[in-house]
Design a protein around this nucleic acid. Structure first.
Length: 518
RNA sequence: GCCCCCAUCGUCUAGCCAGGUCCAGGACACCAGCCUUUCAAGCUGGCGACACGGGUUCGAAUCCCGUUGGGGGUACCA
């Protein structure tokens, strides 16, 4: 047994073997043993654009874990970078999350609402000697860095102002010099147990005294996240792999602020087909794009969940509840994954035919509207959608497939009708079939099939000779669901009308051909 | 440059932690067949991988070291 399904708190969502590994960090060590309780997870997107599928997947794992272990999901908008944030983008992300079916229990909180608290935290650290004033400007530090690099040395910012002369700081402040506040990093390496990757250790030499408060008095990201995670009593931080190198900064900050250190788990990145980080350049990369392509939210959720996790058996198409039951941290994959559009398409097709019809109808609405089908009769629409859902890979395709059913008159593609144009008998046959259909008392799958076969027998032709032109007449397409399902769904009057119209079209086209090459 | 992480079919993955049951299982894609009035779907079969090199061991995809490759980070961005 590896997974502990009963776990819940900072400690031991991890398995005992992993939890037993030594930690240099006493906080984590303590928490890695036995605590039990609901998890408090969080998802803090920055409203700087669309919801990237990588972020969405992170949100999904948080969602799954929160429901598996119980607890709370905190949503926080990381909007401290004012220039890059705006409200429209925040709404955009909120709606993408909602569309995916990810619900938060608390929030959304705005990080920007807390800047004053963050500043006070910085001041407290300053008072306690855990942070210090730094009068080096940005350019100055940059120059020091390049100089060190050119000497072949590695640069580390832990210098002069860390231990300043006694009166220097007050003197410089009095002189009105600008300063930032830097956090005094511990002198030892920072190690932690990553619940998905295992033990990670960063040597002290690589860790700078980083800035927590800028010279303009605004808190930096590192200070803000940690403060907010403390305020929201976050127990487990599951975030992208791009944050691993932030973690050795955050852990000492938690400690300096006197707060328990949460459990960390870093999730691998999602790559594009070129093995580079997935971005719009290489194809769709945001939840919104997939939504607009006609992907079902359940399918995206399922696909993303499986991109970096597997239940261990061979299940792939799983309901959310099944995933909630099966999720376990130590089954999360540690290596990055290439996003496979084909497999998503397949997954979506599974949901297109497997979801309850109402679900399909609901999600199809915008696509139907785009085809001008928002006002059609619901009953008939449902029947037609049900007929085509299995054949459509996505909602967009579905709407295109069913569009002919609601057209007064169809336009036929001569290229597709070639075969029928060659046979001068077809128009007459199609007309006869229309007559038969008009005369039917009950118009359903059985009766329309019987009528067609009857006509074929009488005419001494194979049913196929009638079937193919009929499909073309009703759908303007060579392919589709079983013909009599189509005929029945189309309805008596409409079928008759299309049949006659098609016969006329063929006659005209044949006349034209006659004139062209007699 | 330096730091951290990762490495099984083209792709997603199971197996690895507790070495033998693995000449490596499933899925997508691809190919073929079946089904069929068409197209899908479905079913059956096929193709196809333990990055490389050293150890350890009776035995390694599984443990250790190195190499190579890939990713992430290296900001008064988040």
């Amino acid at each position: 047994m590896r997974a502990s399904n009963s776990i819940v708190h900072p400690a031991s969502i991890i398995d005992p073997a992993r939890a037993a590994t030594p930690h240099l960090n006493p906080e984590v060590q303590i928490m890695s043993s036995h605590s039990v309780g609901p998890v408090r997870v969080r998802f803090p997107p920055s409203p700087t654009g669309f919801l990237h599928v990588g972020g969405a997947r992170t949100a999904i794992y948080n969602d799954l874990l929160r429901h598996h272990h119980g607890g709370s999901f905190v949503l926080r908008i990381e909007d401290t970078d004012r220039q890059r944030s705006d409200q429209a983008m925040t709404r955009q992300i909120l709606s993408a999350l909602q569309w995916l079916g990810i619900q938060h229990d608390e929030g959304p909180f705005l990080q920007s609402d807390n800047v004053e608290k963050h500043r006070q935290a910085a001041m407290r650290l300053l008072d306690e000697g855990k942070a210090y004033h730094c009068f080096h400007g940005q350019e100055e530090v940059e120059a020091m860095r390049t100089a060190a690099l050119s000497r072949g040395e590695n640069f580390q910012y832990r210098t002069y102002f860390r231990e300043p002369a006694s009166d220097e700081v007050s003197r410089r402040i009095a002189a009105g010099e600008a300063y930032a506040i830097r956090f005094r990093m511990p002198k030892e390496a920072v190690s932690f147990h990553d619940v998905v990757r295992g033990d990670v250790s960063f040597p002290a030499e690589g860790l700078d005294d980083f800035i927590i408060l800028r010279s303009d008095g605004t808190p930096t990201y590192h200070l803000s996240v940690v403060c907010d995670d403390i305020e929201h009593r976050v127990s487990h931080i599951f975030r992208g792999e791009d944050h691993v190198s932030n973690t050795p900064k955050h852990i000492p900050l938690f400690e300096a602020l006197g707060a328990p250190v949460p459990v960390f788990g870093h999730l691998p990145m999602i790559m594009g087909p070129n093995k580079k980080r997935l971005s719009k350049r290489t194809g769709a990369a945001s939840v919104e794009e997939f939504r607009d392509q006609g992907i079902l939210p359940q399918a995206l959720y399922n696909y993303l969940a499986l991109l970096g996790w597997s239940p261990g058996d061979d299940r792939e198409v799983m309901s959310r509840q099944e995933m909630v039951d099966a999720i376990s941290i130590d089954r999360l994959v540690t290596s990055s994954a290439v996003f496979d559009y084909d497999k998503l398409a397949w997954m979506n097709a599974q949901y297109m035919s497997g979801e309850p019809l109402e679900q399909i109808l609901h999600h199809a609405k915008p696509f139907l509207a785009a085809q001008g089908l928002s006002e059609v009769e619901p009953q008939r629409l449902a029947a037609v959608v049900d007929l085509y859902r299995q054949r459509a890979h996505n909602l967009k395709e579905l709407a295109q497939f069913i569009e002919p059913f609601f057209q007064e008159q169809l336009t036929y593609d001569p290229e597709l009708c070639k075969k029928f144009l060659k046979d001068p008998a077809i128009p007459g046959l199609v007309d006869s079939l229309a007559e038969r259909y008009g005369a039917l008392d009950t118009f359903d799958i059985e009766s329309t099939e019987a009528a067609l076969r009857q006509l074929a027998t009488e005419q001494e032709i194979k049913p196929g000779v009638l079937i193919h032109p009929t499909r073309m007449a009703l759908t303007a397409s060579k392919a589709g669901p079983p013909l009599f399902d189509v005929v029945a769904a189309m309805g008596q009057a409409e079928s008759q009308r299309h049949l006659h119209h098609f016969a006329n079209y063929l006659r005209q086209a044949q006349d034209v051909a006659e004139v062209a090459n007699p």
